[in-house]
Design a protein around this nucleic acid. Structure first.
Length: 500
RNA sequence: GCCCCCAUCGUCUAGAGGCCUAGGACGCCACCCUUUCAAGGUGGAGAUCAGGGGUUCGAAUCCCCUUGGGGGCACCA
C-alpha cells in the first residue's frame, strides 16, 4: 500500500504556525519514506472560509518550501493528482453519495431535532452534571413518524450511529489508545439540515477516497479519532495509521492561540524571519534528531525526519530561540541572496523617512553589497537592517547633542576633539579614504592627546550616525564618504554650541 | 462533569534499566576579544528527572496511584 499523507487546512484564517508545523511534519514524513504528500482544502465552513485566507495559506506553505505532490489548481496552475478535486466544496456529490449509502444501510438516520430541543437537552445534562450527549430522540423513528415531521416542514440533519463497544488504535506517537464509544457524545451529525456535510464526515470520506495511508495531525484530534475510525469502517474503507503530534503552546501552556500569541506565519515573515529559520525551528518543536546538531535545512530534515523521534509532550513556542536560529541562518545566506531579502526592509524604512520630509537616496542592491560584512552578524531579523544603515541614505541627521559628549568628557573637550578629528579625517581622505588609514590617523591623534580611544570614537560615531550602537566606525566612515562625514562632523560641533 | 493524552533545567530537548554525581541548545551571568553594538571563545548559575508506592542487585527510564497541565465532548474545522 502506497504511503500517502496530507495536510487539510481550512481557509477560515491566515496560515497558522500550527498548521504550518503539521504541514511540515507531513511533508517531511512523505519525503523521508518516499511517499506522496497531498494538499486538500477543507472549505465546508462556508460562513468563515475566504479566498483570501486560502491564498495566504497556499502562498505561505509555498514560501516555506513545503510543496505538495497533489493539490488543487492555484493561480493558473492546474490541479495535480488523480484524486481531485482537492477542494471539499467541489466534492459535495461524493459526500452526498456516501451519506445516502449510510442512510440506506441504516448506519445513519435522519434527525429532526431542532436547535432548541438540542439546546434544552444540553442544558438539562449540564444541570445534572452529565456529559453532553445526543439523547437519541430520532434514532428509532418509524417511517410514519418521519413522514409526520417532514410534513411539518422540518428538514432533517443526518446522524451517524456510533454504536457500542471499545475502539482501539495504535498511534505512531502515542502507542495503543482505547476509547469506549459511550464517551463519544452519542450519534453525531454528519450532514447539516441544509445539506452541507460536516468536518468529521468529510475528512473520512476524503481520506478514504484519496487513499490516505497516514493521518498525521495535531493532538487536538486524538479524541476525535474513534469517531473517524467508526466512520471509516462504516464506509467500508481501510482505516489509516494515525500519528498525533504534540500541540504548540502559548507561554501559559494552553493550546497556541491568536489571543495569546502571534500565530500568523505571515506576521513572522513581515518581521524579517526567514523561511529557513522558521522551518528549522518548527521541526525542532516536537522532533529532535537524537544528536546535538540543530541547524537543519529543509532538505536535511527530509533525510533525517522520523515520526518515531517525535515526542509526545506539548511544546511552548519560544520566540527567542526562533530569533537565534534566524540569526544563524541569516549568517549563512549567500551575499546576493541576503541583499535581495534585506533590501525591501531598508526601502520601507527610507520611504517612511521620506514621508516625514527627509531627503533620501534610495539604495540599489549594489549599494548594499559592500555593507554586508558590516551588518551580517548584526541581523537577528531582516528588518534590523534599517537601524543599522539607514543614516547612510538620509541627508538629514537628527543628533541628540547630549549624546555627542562621552561620559568622561565635557562639552568643550568634545567640540575640540571633533575639530581635531575632522582635520585628521580630512587629511587622510585627501590621500586615501580607507578604514585602516582612518584608524591609524585617529589612534595617533588619541595618543598625542592622551585620550581614551573609545571616547573619541564614540563622539565621532554619534556625530556621523546619530546613534551609540552602530556597525564598526571606520567602515562606517568609508561607507558614508569623505564629504558627508566632514559635513556631519561640522554639524555636530555646531550642535554642541547650543549646549554651552 | 465525562473521556483521552502528557509530565527531565525558565524554554526547546537528549535520555529507550547500569555509560546520569542527568548531556546539548536558547535565554541569563561572568570573563576573554573589542572603538560601540553584535558575532565568536571560555566558564558559571540553573532539573532531589512532579510526588508517592512498587518491580529489580540496580530506575529519569517498567507498573500502579496521586497531583498538575493540556486536549476533546457543536447542525466549527
Amino acid at each position: 500500500m502506497a504511503t500517502r499523507c496530507r495536510i487539510a487546512p481550512s481557509p477560515t484564517g491566515p496560515l497558522h504556525i500550527g498548521t504550518a508545523r503539521t504541514a511540515l511534519f507531513n511533508f517531511l514524513f512523505a519525503r523521508h519514506v518516499g511517499g506522496t504528500f497531498v494538499l486538500r482544502i477543507e472549505d465546508t465552513d462556508v460562513a468563515r472560509s475566504t479566498l483570501g485566507n486560502e491564498r495566504d495559506i497556499l502562498e505561505g506553505l509555498h514560501w516555506l518550501g513545503i510543496t505538495w505532490d497533489e493539490g488543487p489548481e492555484v493561480a493558473g496552475q492546474p490541479a495535480r493528482g488523480p484524486y481531485g478535486p482537492y477542494r471539499q466544496m467541489q466534492r459535495l456529490d461524493l459526500y452526498r453519495t456516501a451519506s445516502d449509502r449510510l442512510l440506506s444501510e441504516d448506519k445513519a438516520y435522519p434527525c429532526y431535532c431542532t436547535p432548541d430541543e438540542l439546546a434544552a437537552d444540553r442544558a438539562a445534562q449540564e444541570a445534572t452534571h452529565q456529559p453532553p450527549r445526543y439523547v437519541g430522540r430520532c434514532a428509532h423513528l418509524t417511517a410514519e413518524q418521519r413522514r409526520a415531521r417532514e410534513a411539518e416542514g422540518r428538514r432533517p440533519a443526518v446522524r451517524f450511529r456510533v454504536g457500542e463497544g471499545v475502539v482501539a488504535f495504535d498511534d505512531l506517537i502515542r502507542g495503543h489508545v482505547e476509547i469506549d464509544t459511550t464517551a463519544l457524545g452519542g450519534d453525531l451529525v454528519i450532514v447539516r439540515s441544509n445539506g452541507t456535510p460536516l468536518y468529521h464526515f468529510t475528512v473520512c470520506v476524503d481520506d478514504a477516497a484519496m487513499a490516505i495511508s497516514h493521518v498525521i495531525r495535531g493532538e487536538d484530534h486524538l479524541s476525535n479519532t474513534p469517531r473517524h475510525i467508526l466512520l471509516f469502517r462504516a464506509l467500508g474503507a481501510d482505516v489509516p495509521t494515525f500519528a498525533h503530534l504534540p500541540l504548540i503552546l502559548n507561554a501559559d501552556r494552553s493550546k497556541m492561540s491568536k489571543r495569546k500569541s502571534q500565530t500568523a506565519i505571515d506576521d513572522y515573515r513581515a518581521e524579517g524571519f526567514i523561511k529557513e529559520a522558521i522551518v528549522n525551528y518548527l521541526a525542532l518543536l516536537g522532533w529532535s534528531p537524537g544528536t546535538e546538531e540543530e541547524i537543519f535545512s529543509l532538505e536535511q530534515l527530509g533525510e533525517r525526519f522520523e515520526l518515531e523521534r517525535v515526542h509526545s509532550g506539548g511544546a511552548v513556542f519560544d520566540r527567542e530561540r526562533l530569533e537565534w536560529l534566524n540569526g544563524q541562518w541569516i549568517r549563512r545566506l549567500p551575499d546576493e541572496d541576503l541583499v535581495e531579502r534585506v533590501l525591501p526592509y531598508l526601502v520601507t524604512r527610507l520611504e517612511e523617512r521620506r514621508a516625514e520630509g527627509a531627503t533620501v537616496h534610495m539604495p540599489s542592491g549594489d549599494d548594499i553589497v559592500p555593507l554586508l560584512p558590516l551588518v551580517r552578524e548584526r541581523l537577528p531579523l531582516l528588518g534590523s537592517i534599517a537601524d543599522l544603515v539607514d543614516f547612510l541614505f538620509v541627508d538629514e541627521l537628527a543628533v541628540e547633542p547630549a549624546l555627542l559628549v562621552p561620559k568622561r568628557w565635557d562639552v568643550a573637550t568634545t567640540a575640540a576633539a571633533l575639530g581635531d578629528a575632522r582635520q585628521v579625517i580630512a587629511d587622510v581622505g585627501s590621500i586615501s579614504f580607507e578604514a585602516d588609514e582612518l584608524e591609524a590617523g585617529l589612534r595617533a591623534l588619541v595618543d598625542a592627546r592622551g585620550w581614551k580611544a573609545g571616547d573619541l570614537f564614540m563622539a565621532i560615531r554619534v556625530a556621523i550616525t546619530g546613534r551609540t550602537a552602530t556597525p564598526p566606525l571606520f567602515d562606517t566612515l568609508v561607507a558614508l564618504g569623505l564629504e558627508r562625514a566632514l559635513a556631519r562632523l561640522d554639524a555636530a560641533r555646531e550642535a554642541l554650541e547650543d549646549l554651552t
